[in-house]
């Protein structure tokens, strides 16, 4: 598997190749082709449910769930994609979802990475216990305490406002935990050096640690964004007014008591997945080895 590694294939060999070298090169390229083919097949397999979503979104409603599965829609109902904008308030839903996802992600990354610095780089009594408390709450299933939480937030007038979701999602222990673990792998020597230079702890966080944790921030950003974007139970419990609905909640309105518009739901789901896919495609380029580790040569 290591043969795929590009570093080994830097053949700047100027001398004419000997037959053995040619054979080795062929072998390498063949194995690389096989590797790519395997990857592509795996990718197609992984995408199968998504493909089914797209196909279903182009079907008539009663053709979505059939035995055996029907892979080619007949007729192809492009109309679903027009209907979903016409029949529902997609613009509002997308707007609300976007507002929530962006602001939750921003605040979560900000407060999470800030708190993580306290947990990871500062030493004070009670730190570890407090941290364990954070992690512990992740272990409690939300279904179990959502009613007490809802009553509480209702009493301070937050239910049925977008603020409720913001409050709910922003301060998750997940972000603190993720950032803290990442900070632990940033060598202490860097902050130490800055301290000697007279930099304050806030400065160290802002100027040194934060820029060095780009990959962690990228993954926290992506995951928080996706989780907020796809959250269903939170908005379900807290948001009632149609003008506050998020995409996931809105799509549920195609499920009536006795009937469901499955084709429209699938069309809506496809529309809902696309922005995430694009953001991911753009965001994943931040997963590159940062100077955090290459620049620690002392």
């Amino acid at each position: 598997m290591t043969t795929v590694s590009p570093t080994t294939s830097v053949d700047a060999s100027t001398s004419p190749l000997r037959p053995a070298q040619v054979r080795a090169r062929w072998k390498r390229q063949a194995s690389r082709a096989v590797g790519y083919a395997a990857l592509l097949v795996a990718a197609a397999g992984i995408l199968l449910p998504f493909v089914w979503m797209v196909i279903s979104s182009l079907k008539e409603n009663n053709q979505v769930f059939t035995v055996p599965l029907q892979w080619i829609p007949d007729p192809v109902v492009w109309q679903n994609y027009i209907d979903i904008w016409a029949k529902s308030d997609m613009v509002t839903w997308i707007k609300n979802t976007l507002i929530l996802s962006v602001s939750v992600t921003f605040l979560q990354v900000l407060t999470g990475s800030f708190a993580a610095y306290g947990f990871s780089k500062m030493r004070f009594p009670g730190r570890d216990a407090l941290f364990l408390l954070y992690v512990a709450t992740i272990a409690v299933p939300w279904q179990a305490y959502m009613i007490p939480q809802f009553v509480m937030l209702s009493n301070i007038g937050l239910s049925n406002t977008l603020w409720s979701i913001l409050a709910l999602q922003t301060f998750s222990a997940f972000g603190v935990f993720l950032m803290k673990q990442y900070y632990e792998s940033i060598p202490e020597s860097l902050s130490e050096a800055a301290r000697i230079d007279g930099m304050s702890e806030y400065g160290i966080w802002r100027r040194i640690i934060l820029p060095l944790s780009t990959p962690a921030i990228a993954s926290l950003t992506l995951l928080t964004f996706v989780n907020t974007w796809n959250d269903y139970l939170g908005p379900l419990i807290y948001l009632r007014s149609p003008e506050l609905w998020t995409l996931q909640l809105g799509l549920q309105t195609f499920v009536g008591q006795y009937n469901a518009e499955h084709a429209l739901i699938m069309a809506g789901s496809v529309i809902s997945v696309l922005p995430i896919a694009v953001i991911f495609l753009l965001g994943q380029k931040f997963f590159v080895r940062g100077i955090a580790t290459t620049g620690v040569k002392g």
């Binding site: 407060t111 708190a115 610095y117 500062m122 030493r123 408390l133 954070y134 709450t137 305490y145 301060f171």
Partner: peptide, 19 residues
């Protein structure tokens, strides 16, 4: 240390810890 944790802890304590 607390000043770093506090902004997150306020929300966390109120919204998650109490329930």
């Amino acid at each position: 240390g607390w000043s770093f944790i506090l902004p997150n802890f306020l929300g966390f304590g109120l919204l998650t810890l109490i329930p």
